[in-house]
């Protein structure tokens, strides 16, 4: 049961972090909640499609299909998060703070892509380790506990961000989204290196003695910063390049907020 709790909690926490921070940010912008409906449909549908066709997916591209699908979803999430950040100053510029269709699309794509991967992993785990191996009760209850704890933490993150007030909420969530986006891009690079599509074997360091990836702090750092105990040089380069890009966008956002203090009132 503990295994189920840990695995599901890790997946749910990653997805909830992206979705809750985006939700808080969109709330601060005054967006409607309607985008949650397509996200739910895409996420559940996509995850079911992914999980039920896993065997077929794995066989594609010389057995590298699953890695490539993960890379695609990670890049989709990371890129839409950075795109969302890039749109924010423009949205604030309009006095009416009208949410553009591009911004809604970024919200939907980022959340749905983040959820598809995590939900699919949960489905696969529950079906193969739980129901198929006769361990239904412990695995399902463990999954329920993990999901419950993950969603609850997400709810607190959401209300915590809203509690900061619109202006500060937008800034803090932009920082978080930048970090998460950079983490996703770095993970995608790692998958590409692992599948041999990108060159590079050198591991820069091994910090698993300090923070193990499978420990709770390690899981949290992984979800928030894309923490990797044994990163490669390409991974690090992509991470810092994405982070730099996010920070430039963040600065633009803060400058825009400073110029137009009343934009959000």
């Amino acid at each position: 049961m503990i295994d189920a709790v840990v695995i599901v909690l890790r997946e749910v926490l990653e997805a909830m972090l992206v979705c809750c921070v985006l939700l808080a940010s969109s709330y601060a912008l005054g967006a409607k909640r309607i985008w949650l409906l397509p996200v739910t449909l895409f996420a559940v549908g996509g995850a079911l499609l992914y999980a039920t066709n896993l065997a077929l997916l794995t066989e594609l591209f010389d057995g590298r299909g699953q890695e490539l699908a993960n890379v695609l979803l990670l890049i989709l999430t990371g890129a839409s998060l950075l795109f969302y950040l890039a749109q924010l100053p423009g949205v604030l510029k309009q006095k009416s703070s009208k949410i553009t269709p591009a911004l809604y699309t970024a919200l939907i794509v980022a959340s749905a892509a983040a959820m598809i991967r995590e939900l699919a992993e949960i489905f696969i785990y529950i079906f193969s380790y739980g129901i198929a191996s006769g361990q239904t009760a412990p695995v399902v209850s463990g999954a329920a506990i993990g999901a419950g704890v993950g969603v609850s933490l997400g709810i607190f993150i959401f209300f915590g961000l809203l509690w900061l007030g619109k202006r500060r909420c937008l800034q803090v969530s932009a920082v978080l989204l930048g970090l998460i986006g950079a983490g996703m891009m770095s993970q995608a690079t790692r998958f590409l290196v692992q599948s041999g599509l990108l060159p590079g074997e050198r591991i820069l360091w091994d910090s698993s003695w300090l923070v193990s990836e499978s420990s709770l702090p390690g899981e949290l750092l992984h979800a928030l910063l894309g923490y990797d105990a044994t990163p490669g040089i390409e991974q690090l380069m992509v991470y810092f390049a994405s982070l730099l890009f996010a920070m430039v966008l963040l600065r633009k956002l803060i400058v825009r907020q400073g110029k137009d203090v009343d934009a959000l009132r």
């Binding site: 506990i145 419950g148 704890v149 969603v151 609850s152 933490l153 709810i155 209300f159």
Partner: peptide
């Protein structure tokens, strides 16, 4: 509702 349920879940599940 959301914060109370989240609190209940965290306390009872942990």
């Amino acid at each position: 509702t959301l914060t109370l349920i989240a609190l209940l879940v965290l306390v009872s599940f942990l």
